[in-house]
Design a protein around this nucleic acid. Sequence first.
DNA 1: GTCTATATGTTGATAGAC
DNA 2: GTCTATCAACATATAGAC
Lengths: 215, 215
Amino acid sequence: MTGKQPPPSQPKPDERIRDRNEAKILKSAVELFSRKGFDGTRISEIAKASELPKANVYYYFATKEAIYTRLIERVLVGWDIALEHIHPDREPRDALSAYIDAKLTYSKNHASESRFFANEMLRGGQFMSRKQIRHMKEITRERVRVIEGWIEDGKMVRIDPHHFLIMLWATTQFYADFSNVAAVSLEKKRLGAAEFEAARATLVEIVLNNCLPTK
Amino acid sequence: MTGKQPPPSQPKPDERIRDRNEAKILKSAVELFSRKGFDGTRISEIAKASELPKANVYYYFATKEAIYTRLIERVLVGWDIALEHIHPDREPRDALSAYIDAKLTYSKNHASESRFFANEMLRGGQFMSRKQIRHMKEITRERVRVIEGWIEDGKMVRIDPHHFLIMLWATTQFYADFSNVAAVSLEKKRLGAAEFEAARATLVEIVLNNCLPTK
DNA sequence: GTCTATATGTTGATAGAC
DNA sequence: GTCTATCAACATATAGAC
């Protein structure tokens, strides 16, 4: 017996290596794909950024597409989280400002994932499965219903819920995907915490002060 | 003398051919670059889409980068036009709804140019010259001053002009760059005139009803 | 101005020694 | 699980006949 206390389910050493190397590859890949897209990214670049030989990347992922689709799956999971805030049991003011906050925090902390998804959408979303598209449709439809419910209850002004959601989505997204445009506009070298806070405050003001009946 | 009336400055036949073929190449290129970015687009694809042999593309453009930078120049020219509506002599209501209208019309009619620029921004804007970046800064700063003027004159509520502009920019942009996401959200196959009109109406309502003092 | 042939390098992916 | 060597396909770009 040594002083080490093995955790309940100790992974095999091989699995630890696999997990670590896959994580390194995916991290490098999401950054590269987010900048240059699927066709523009070279496996050799991913290998170099991962500090692994190219053949090693192929040991973990059979094809370039396998890396890409794994990343789509991961990004879509992170996607739903912010939208969960828009929930029928919450008051619109709480829910909408929580959503804006969560989305901007995601934009700040997961900028390359966000850009990756933007790149895939620019391409037309051809790598997404029908199941994934169906899922996006469903979660959107649910949130539209929540907003419609708020409108019917007189808690929100009468507004097109689809375009309202698009407005929130587009604006929060912008600070991640086009951060350099935002930086040029704000006359900063890069976006920092202060800029994200000002974005949040402005957006909350515009959205909440207009779309809620009482102020 | 034939029946034909030559126009005052008849271009040489060679120039007509050059203009026509360059236009064909640029048209194909902007669509391909907008989907797959600089590194992801192959000259052979541009040639095929232009219905020209690959070597013929090289006859008109020395390098792939030459095509790309020509397109940046063209897109940036189209860029300023919508912003011109935000002019100090106009009333905010007029100016802002004209801007939204112009931007959405551009998104509808020049979607591939818009996506092309989005792709370049995702990449970090590395192909833009310092002069072009400076120009973007200047026209943004001018519009910020216009909005600040409106606020000082009591014609608009006190709001951060930078983030306000970003909100308008991001939202109108979205319908071109991520039209398939918008289509999924709106449960349509593709965006048509009705969707752009609803987008315009919703955005004008949110922006104008909140940011103008009297209603 | 058109276009075939080609030079020269790089790509995604694999074989197989360690 | 690591990594060198390698393949066929394909890339950008050019030479030069027409």
